[in-house]
Simulated scan of single mutants.
Amino acid sequence: MSAKRSGDESSSAGFSLVAVLVFLLIVSAIVVPFAVTAKTRLLIANNEVEQERLSLLAEGLANVVSSELADGSATDKLPLDSTPTSCRSGEFAFDVRIQDHSGLIDLNAADVHLLSLGFASLGFDRQASETLAKATIQFRGNANAFAAQAEPTTAAGPSENKQAPFESVSELQEFSALASTPSHDLYKVFTVNSKRGTLSLDHTPNRLRAIFADESGSGASVMQGVGQASAYTVEIAASRDGSGIAGQAGFIIEVLPASAAGFRRLSRNPAAEIVDLAPSMPSRATDCDGLFGTEIAQILRGWAS
């Protein structure tokens, strides 16, 4: 009798143990995914905070560089043709690109020859480049509202010509042949802010400079230098060692007349929103004092320490 009772108790204990193990497995199946999800969301949130902090830092430094461009102190110490310049402060690294718009092709002022060279730099052959150049001039049309007849549309251009100046380089993406061209590439060739029908080779980015080097004669529309620039593109990327995250800022600025002093933002640069601003070519290294000024460099060193 005693042996039977002992066997029943062992069976009951074994069943209880199995029940407890099953219960723990069920609880684990429910809790573990929540814990993993919570940890993942925490990592994502931390990364987003880090990127936001770095982006704010990059934007603040872009304002500093823009002020230096406005007062002329940066034009002699920094390349103005999108050549990357970098500096380090503690665990932080900064990459800066500045593009003087006198080195870009103005969509509203350039002639057919200059426009066709710009499209050729994007990879179009000579015939396609000339067709796009003519379509560009037809698109912007005659600013005279009383013109007898509007220019007809072409297959290379949009379905309807604007008959007014380009307000943004991004309008080129209305052209069927340019719809898939990244806006970043377009902004590296064209502008609407130089207000010149000429191009300064001194400040022309490599993409355009290579095209002009292949031309036997570029004509009067290309010059070795021009007067004081009126607009710049400023791009800055800020990163921290080991984080794998970069904060980016970029915008187009207009330098105000000497009587007004300073600068104003014309627009944000689409390049900074979608393109990794880390240099695709070897950057020109310098110290942050030379790049942002001694006072700002001291602040960065204090923040990085």
Rank of each mutant, 00 (worst) to 15 (best):
S2V: 13
G7D: 11
S11D: 04
S11T: 09
G14V: 02
V20H: 05
L24C: 10
L24S: 13
L25I: 10
S28C: 11
V32W: 12
V32E: 10
P33K: 05
A35C: 06
V36L: 15
L42A: 15
N46P: 05
E48A: 15
V49H: 11
E50H: 10
E50D: 11
L54S: 00
S55K: 10
L57F: 01
G60D: 08
L61H: 09
V64I: 15
S67M: 13
E68A: 11
E68H: 15
L69T: 00
A70C: 07
A70Q: 02
G72M: 10
G72K: 06
G72N: 02
P79I: 00
L80G: 00
R88P: 07
R88M: 10
R88T: 11
S89C: 09
E91A: 12
V96P: 00
V96E: 02
H101L: 06
G103W: 00
G103M: 03
L104F: 09
L107I: 08
L107V: 05
N108H: 02
A109V: 03
H113L: 14
L115N: 02
L117S: 06
L117N: 01
S121W: 07
A128G: 00
A128P: 00
S129G: 09
T131A: 15
T131V: 11
L132D: 05
F139P: 04
R140L: 04
A148P: 03
A150C: 01
P152L: 02
T154G: 02
T154F: 01
G157W: 01
P158M: 02
P158Y: 07
S159N: 10
E160M: 12
N161P: 06
P165R: 09
F166W: 08
E167R: 14
L178W: 00
L178T: 08
T181S: 11
T181H: 07
S183M: 09
L186K: 03
Y187W: 10
F190A: 05
V192H: 06
S194Y: 09
K195D: 12
L199H: 04
S200Q: 05
S200W: 01
T204M: 14
N206M: 12
L208S: 04
R209I: 06
E215T: 01
G217Q: 11
Q224A: 11
Q224E: 14
V226N: 06
G227Q: 10
Q228E: 13
A231W: 05
V234Q: 01
E235I: 05
A237C: 04
S243D: 08
S243C: 06
A246F: 11
G247Y: 03
G247T: 03
I252F: 02
I253G: 05
I253D: 00
L266G: 07
L266S: 07
L266I: 15
S267D: 09
N269C: 02
N269D: 15
E273K: 13
V275Y: 01
L277Q: 01
L277K: 06
L277V: 02
P279T: 04
M281H: 11
P282T: 08
D287I: 11
D289H: 08
L291T: 07
Q298A: 15
Q298V: 10
R301A: 09
R301S: 08
W303F: 12
